[in-house]
Design a protein around this nucleic acid. Structure first.
Length: 639
RNA sequence: GGGCCCGUAGCUCAGCCAGGACAGAGUGCCGGCCUUCUAAGCCGGUGGUCCCGGGUUCAAAUCCCGGCGGGCCCGCCA
């Protein structure tokens, strides 16, 4: 279906094109339409065309264009003006009102939502944070972006599955498990969630191992090197003290227990091996500690409104034999090689220009061989990821699989694609998308999961909830838990979505909890205002009874913005750029609020004009609703 | 050393891919607006060598080349 904005652009292009032809410049309407742009300021009209782009020398003929447009302007153009090298165009109010009214009347609540085509089957794997600590804001960004991708596909009518890869093998989990066993499966204090509690145990164990290692090393160091090591030691002890201030008993018991161990690292490595071989003496406690963390993570995700369809345990993947199968296939592959005496795939040889371009891998990215297994026979992360990717495609019969993973994993993700290709999974290799995002930095704070230095999603949500309550109370209103959570999580998500995923996001905890312009709350407030007007009006606006010359000033700006919405949404859905939607919502809310303040709707005596105003209110409401559906934000009827 | 990304107002960011008007928001700071549809709002003021240097163009924050600064990757870690 044609969008109102493309309709009006075509109308303008045709009218202007006819006039250009009259002054001797022939140009086809389609290319003229592409040259139409939005002026930077309202004084420059609703639309504008840079004349030199159309044809050299056209600027000089602009006066003739102006005088000719009166008769040939057609139904859409009110007037045009020449300013500098631009032709500025004002649309006829009645025309703009009519096409906007028709578009909204046709689609109502689904205004802007793309037409469904043949549904695709799409898997989005995201978050997949290691089960060793609570979700921090970095994982929060992943959760919000991944859910956005899933929602974008759902909006297109695709069938989407959300999967979480539980990385329950590897040294990180081994450290947690080690500490957990040494402490004889401790319970969390009543006020603390399990994932927060176990995250502290993980960090304390990891730090104690680091300290022991460093102390040993220090015995052989002198001079500058010794000084540096001592400073590092001080930092570690500082981190440990911070953890002790939260769980004193745990840290004391753990310190005492580990001080009697000759080589913690060696024991942890042994434990890791035992985990991977499903050693019956630990298999139960291993699963127990992982699941305790996962329950906490799942609660956090539920607070965010992010729900997964599948939780895939890495240990089960290994046990299923699929990983072994991948290694076997590799051994029979023509790309098998031995690198540093370990079995590997020579992906560099595979990655010629043709294959790279087929898989979307940059030419300049150097691809080292992918080592498949350690000398002890255990497999490596990327090897397992090959198996997991095959599993994701198979189990869901997927047309497309997204891996939402930090940009720092660009190389392993490229290797993953190439490995699939090398093993004959051509379609899978082509249909796998690494949706890369940059990390989150906290202002004045170096995050580290291993050191227990992070800001959790839970604490941000708690602070935001408290802040929302406080604000409501200051206005004499009590808000429900549900509303408070909706305000809080939307505020958090909005921040996560507002910066281009490829850019580092600087998170300022002080700013994050402020509720003002440019936040989700601001947009929610805008929605509540629009909603309030419409519910007081009590019935649907009369979409056909609009017209006249009412679209001036802010009303006109708002109408144009609403008219542009379907194109914006489409672009955001196809290009997966949530930040564009955020910018749009900020602009829309700003214009709406500014208009709202000076131009009453319900008391408007002129019926046609009132209908027009109601159309704008209705349009704003629907646009916010549908944007929120895409971004995973919550609208609130009252705030 | 090689590769990728980023550099725009004190701070956080749009705009760059598809070049176009005196470069836009938010925040901060200063001042004003609640007998009128929700003041979590609105209005006004303040604030910029678009990292630097060349080039292409009628026109460069945007494209090209060369620098500088910051981040990440180049593990038998994940």
């Amino acid at each position: 279906m044609e969008t109102p904005y493309s309709e009006l652009r075509r109308c303008v292009a045709e009218a202007v094109g006819r006039v250009f032809a009259l002054v001797g410049v022939e140009v086809d309407y389609a290319s003229l339409e592409n040259l139409i742009q939005e002026p930077p300021r309202p004084e420059f009209g609703d639309l504008a065309i840079p004349l030199p782009r159309v044809s050299r020398g056209l600027t000089e003929k602009c006066r003739e264009v102006v005088s000719a447009i009166g008769e040939l302007g057609g139904e859409c153009i009110e007037k045009v003006e020449c300013v500098g090298s631009y032709l500025n165009i004002w649309l006829r109010s009645s025309y703009l009102a009519r096409i906007l009214g028709r578009a909204l009347a046709t689609s109502r609540g689904s205004y802007g939502i793309p037409e469904k085509s043949t549904p695709k089957r799409v898997v989005v794997e995201f978050v997949s944070a290691n089960p060793v600590h609570p979700l921090h804001i970095g994982s929060g960004r992943n959760a919000v972006l991944g859910d956005f991708i899933a929602r974008a596909h759902e909006l297109l009518g695709d069938i989407v599955e959300r999967r979480y890869y539980v990385n329950d093998l590897g040294l990180q989990v081994a450290y947690l498990l080690y500490g957990y066993i040494k402490l004889s499966k401790p319970r969390a204090p009543p006020s603390m969630k399990d994932d927060h509690f176990l995250g502290l145990i993980y960090a304390a164990t990891s730090i104690l191992a680091d300290i022991a290692r460093l102390r040993k090393k220090l015995e052989h160091l002198t001079g500058d090197e010794a000084g540096e090591a001592r400073r590092e030691l001080d930092t570690l002890i500082g981190d440990l003290l911070r953890i002790r201030s939260r769980v004193p008993d745990v840290v004391e018991a753990l310190t005492k227990s580990l001080s009697q161990v000759e080589d913690v690292d060696q024991e942890v490595r042994a434990l890791s091996l035992a985990m991977e071989s499903c050693d019956p003496t630990i298999v139960e406690v291993h699963r127990e500690v992982v699941d305790r963390v996962l329950i906490g993570i799942r609660q956090t995700l539920e607070r965010l409104g992010v729900v997964f369809d599948r939780w895939d345990y890495e240990s089960e993947l290994v046990r299923s034999g699929l990983v072994r199968e991948v290694v076997e296939m590799s051994r029979n592959s023509e790309f098998i090689t031995y690198y540093k005496n370990a079995p590997a795939l020579d992906l560099g040889r595979l990655a010629n220009d043709a294959v790279r371009s087929e898989l979307g891998i940059p030419k300049s990215l150097e691809i080292p061989p992918l080592i498949l297994a350690r000398s002890d026979g255990t497999t490596l992360y990327t090897t397992r990821d090959i198996a997991y990717t095959i599993k994701k495609f198979r189990e869901f019969n997927a047309d497309k699989v997204y891996n939402v993973i930090a940009v720092e994993q660009t190389l392993p993700q490229a290797q993953l694609k190439l490995a699939l290709y090398a093993l004959g999974f051509y379609k899978e290799a082509r249909s796998l998308v690494h949706y890369a995002y940059e990390i989150v930095n906290v202002k004045g704070f170096a995050m580290s999961g291993r050191r227990g230095r992070y800001i959790t999603v839970d604490e941000i949500l708690d602070t935001l909830i408290a802040r929302a309550r406080e604000l409501a109370r200051s206005r004499g209103v009590e808000i429900s838990d549900e509303i408070a959570l909706k305000i809080a999580r939307s505020a958090f998500k909005y921040i996560m979505l507002s910066v281009s995923p490829k850019k580092t996001l600087v998170f300022d905890p002080e700013q994050a909890v402020e509720v003002k312009s440019g936040t989700a709350t601001y947009v929610q407030y805008t929605y509540a205002r629009a909603n309030s007007i419409l519910s007081k009006y009590g019935r649907e606006p009369d979409f056909n009874g609009v017209g006249g010359d009412g679209l001036v000033g802010k009303r006109r700006e708002l109408a144009l913005l609403i008219a542009r919405f379907p194109e914006i949404l489409r672009k955001v859905v196809l290009e997966l750029t949530p930040e564009d939607m955020v910018s749009y919502l900020n602009k829309l809310s700003e214009i709406f609020n500014s208009w709202y303040d000076t131009d009453p709707v319900l008391t408007e005596p002129d019926e046609q004009l009132r209908n027009l105003k109601l159309l704008l209110v209705y349009g704003t409401k629907v646009v916010i609703e549908n944007s929120f559906k895409l971004l995973g934000l919550d609208v609130v009827e009252r705030i």
